[in-house]
Every structure is written in C-alpha cells, then in structure tokens.
Design a protein around this nucleic acid. Structure first.
Lengths: 242, 242
DNA sequence: TGCTGGTTGCCATGGCAACATTCC
DNA sequence: GGAATGTTGCCATGGCAACCAGCA
C-alpha cells in the first residue's frame, strides 16, 4: 500500500493526515531495527506541539502507528529488570532530522562496577542520556553511536558524571541506592517533560512537589540541591519501600 | 481434577498448598458470577498475613488462581470510566466467612444527582464502601445485598454520608470535583491499606505524605481535616491535571 | 559448571473509542 | 431518535520467573 493510500485511509477515519505524513517522512520499516516507544511518542508530542495540535494518548498513537507500519512487532529491550517497550521493525530514516536526536540504543539505566577501566576504581555510569531532553551534550554524545542499532550494551562515561559520582557519598549509600534514585528521577523527568510539553502547569508543579517530597526536603529548599542533603534523605525514605 | 490433585500439583511447583486449599475452601466456579480482582487479592493478602507467609504479587497470584480455577475469564465491570478487572466464573462459597466481607457488587464510584428520591434534593452517594477496610458499618451495609450477583447499580445512602455532603461545600466546587477527590482517595486508601498489611512503614508514611501534599496542606496539618480547608485546595491543585 | 544478564511469556493494570443497551 | 452509560477490543505499561546464551 502506498503512503498516499495510507494517508487517505487515516484521513477518513481520524483526520490525522499530517501526522501520518510525518510518520512516513521520518520513519521506515526495517527488519531487525527497533525504536523505544517512549522516545517515538515524545517525538510525536513535539510534532504535535509544533503544529499546535492535540496529541493522541500513547495507546491511540500505538494504534495509529501500527496501521501505518503494518506488521510492527513488540519487543522489550534493555538491561535486566529495566526492559522497555520497543516498536520492532522500524527505524528513523537516515534523511530525517530526528536521527540526530536518537539517544543510545542502550539508553537504559546502566550502572556497573564490574568494569573499572576508567578513572581507576571509579564507578562507571551511563547517565541514561535523558531520552526526551535533547541538551547539546546528550545530542553530541549520542551522535557518535547512531548507526549502532543492535543490542550491544555500550557504556558511556561523561567526564562530568564521573566527577559527580566518584566520591563524597556517605558510606551507607550503596550502588543500589543510586540506581533506585536514578530510576525514580528518570521517571520523574519523563513525566515532568511531558507535562511541560502539554502546558499542564499545575500538573508540573505537582510532579515537582511529589518527587522532592520523597526526599523529605521541602520544595522551597530544592535550590540546595548541591548541598548534599537530598540523596541521603531520599534513600532513607525509600530503603524499605517495595 | 479433585482439589487434592490440584494441591499436589501446586505443592510440587510452588509449595503453596495452603493457599490452594484456602482458595478451594472459600471459592467455587460459578457461571455468570464474578469477583473484583483487587478484592480477591486483598482477601489473599489477609490470608498470608494470618499465616505470616510472604504473599505473591498480583500477577503471580493471577497465575495461581487461574491454575486452580481453570477457565476463569476476565471482565471489566463498573461504571463508565471506572471499570475494574474481575475474575469471571467464580464466586465466594456461601459457606465461606469471606462472604460477609464482600462489598456491594456495585462497589464502584457512583455519584449521581439524577435520582432524588431520598432526603429530598440531597445528593445520593454510594460511599464506595471501601473494599478492603471492613468496618462494622460497611459490613452490615453489604450483608443486605449479598446474594445480588448481577450488575445492577444499587445505590446506597448512609445517613452519615448524606450529612457529610448535603451542604457546606464552597460554591465553586462541583460534583466532578468531589468525584475526582473520592477517586483519588479510594486509590490512596487501597495503597495505604496494602502497605500497612505488609508492614511497609516507610512506604506508608510516604503514601500519606504524597496524598496530602496534593492538597497543598502540610502533613502535620492533617489533623485539621474537619476545618474545611483540604478539599478546596486539592481541587485547585488538580483542576487542570490530566 | 554455575553465574550473570538480556529476552520473553504470562500475568497484572488502565485509557480511549467503538459498540450495545437502556431510558427518556 | 438521541442521550447516557455499561462493556469490550485494542492499544499502552510493568513485575516476576523461566529460558537461554555468553563467560569465568
């Protein structure tokens, strides 16, 4: 089926021809490739933001993309215990500007102390380049590995990251504490970003308050992020949480 | 397959014969009947609590119960927009003590101002008898309707409820605001109860803090629940939340 | 051979929209 | 006939455990 026919079908059903066109322009079927769903959905949100158009929710967007790229499969990829849903059988077109914004394929939480070939004895940290916040640094980080579409667990250590983590943590804080915090923070960042995209200011405020309330530090105090008080109290509050 | 054979199979696989026995003792296949999953799971949690045994998570419990009651179906029942997952094809045995603890089948959020045949002009409220907190009052409420296993939308108005709601709300608070609050509070209560069952005190504290932080009222102030300040600020904070 | 860690199957849950029924 | 509302199909997501491959 040609892309024009696809568009016509969707135009009739849901009047979303522009989005279908956007999908066809930026993505293509590709055996063996996959895109993390949340990344693709965030691309879509930005697309809608640019068009000042109401976005579909993730489930409905799923229906749409399945109807455009027939035969899309589902896979859950990622490190053990942190697998994420991917659309399998699709890739960003090499001609698409989005390709510059694709984070690592191994964009998953990856904290390991089994490899110590950098900064002797320091912790290797893939800062899980935030999938949706395309800061200059994460974009440039990612470009170096764009063509690598397989599942290899590339690690990446930003100099800043190692400085941040290599020392000065209270001794009773473990690697798992840091993992937990990072996971919670990633989740928080994702929700925060999406609520910002949707101009849900009240929701945004609520998210910030909720997240930082986990640290037992009042929201108005979060300016003191650098004062070394937040991580410990967060861990304390979450130590026995399931 | 006899219940003894069932138990033997599960004993071999998962060493949970007592729970299987408990299931067989308290539940039975029944065409056309259903039990809300969260209610059944909460019964199970209490069962484990009594035995001082680690409970399976809901997904694993689902596998267990499906293997004991073959052919169980899934249905989502409830008022529009508030459907809940049920196990379909099973009921509590009439000989089971649990039958006294089954809430209404229409235990779902139900706020309506279209029926006004009680307490002239007041709001009819099904206080969504909390599925897991078996207070004397909710238990006695439920008994009156135990045999009614169909989907009829029974309403029930406790005198106390009508007193609580019939007046004294600021005029800018709508029925939908109350619905939202009640929904959020039900969710909060469920989580709170489960964390209490599991002795997750830290988690419990976090839940309380998170929930009440939505109201912009500090946790230490929640003693002032009756002072009419919480509902309005909660609604304000959530008005534009998706 | 046993550990580690990615993948997947089978559960769970929820949103939205289409469908079906019921009730003005 | 149209509005309201319960039900279901088709998406989404996640936890846990089984499986399996690579590796010490």
């Amino acid at each position: 089926m040609s892309s024009d026919q696809l568009i016509e079908r969707w135009c009739k059903d849901h009047a979303t021809p522009t989005t279908v066109q956007w999908l066809v322009d930026n993505f293509e079927p590709a055996e063996g490739s996959s895109i993390r769903r949340s990344i693709l959905y965030n691309f879509y949100l930005e697309h809608c933001l640019g068009l000042k158009v109401e976005a579909l929710n993730p489930a409905s967007f799923g229906k749409l993309i399945h109807s455009v790229f027939l035969g899309l499969k589902t896979r859950r990829l990622g490190t053990r215990g942190n697998s994420k849903y991917h659309y399998y059988g699709i890739q960003v077109k090499s001609s698409s500007p989005l390709i510059k914004q694709i984070p690592f394929d191994s964009d998953l939480l990856l904290l390991s102390n089994t490899h110590q070939d950098f900064d002797n004895q320091s912790i290797h940290l893939n800062m899980s380049p935030n999938e949706h916040i395309f800061s200059p640094i994460s974009t440039s980080m990612n470009n170096s590995n764009n063509n690598n579409n397989n599942n290899s667990s590339n690690e990446f250590l930003s100099p800043n990251d190692s400085l941040l983590l290599s020392n000065e943590l209270p001794s009773d804080i473990t690697i798992n504490d840091i993992k937990d915090f990072q996971k919670a923070h990633d989740d928080y960042s994702t929700k925060l970003y999406q609520s910002l995209l949707k101009f849900q200011y009240d929701h945004t405020e609520k998210l910030i308050q909720q997240f930082w309330s986990l640290t037992n530090i009042h929201f108005s105090q979060t300016n003191d992020l650098t004062n070394n008080g937040i991580l410990p109290s967060f861990f304390e509050a979450n130590k026995k949480t399931c």
